[in-house]
């Protein structure tokens, strides 16, 4: 794998992880968590673990983001802490 891509993805991974923890709006936190999963999927596929990348893309970035969003819409949209 080209190491520059590796560095870019890892930096964005840390950035999205921090943002999804820090942001007050829970809907955008859920969306950014989906972005995190997708970057993770890119990393897995870069390492040749295609099966894991596939699962991460389908479950992490796809379905669990939908589950989180539908949960957020049933509670408060703003985080209180």
């Amino acid at each position: 794998m080209i190491w520059i891509f590796d560095i870019i993805i890892l930096v964005f991974l840390v950035v999205t992880a921090l943002i999804s923890l820090q942001v007050k709006d829970l809907l955008s936190a859920a969306m950014i968590f989906g972005v995190y999963s997708f970057l993770m999927c890119l990393l897995w596929s870069g390492m040749g673990a295609v099966d894991v990348a596939f699962t991460e893309a389908a479950v992490g970035a796809g379905v669990s983001a939908v589950f989180l969003i539908s949960t957020v819409l049933r509670t408060k949209r703003r985080s209180s802490d």
């Binding site: 596939f54 699962t55 389908a58 796809g62 379905v63 939908v66």
Partner: peptide, 13 residues
Amino acid sequence: PGGGFQGGVIFGA
């Protein structure tokens, strides 16, 4: 690459 879990999740999606 693929299998029951991934295919099932995509079908459910």
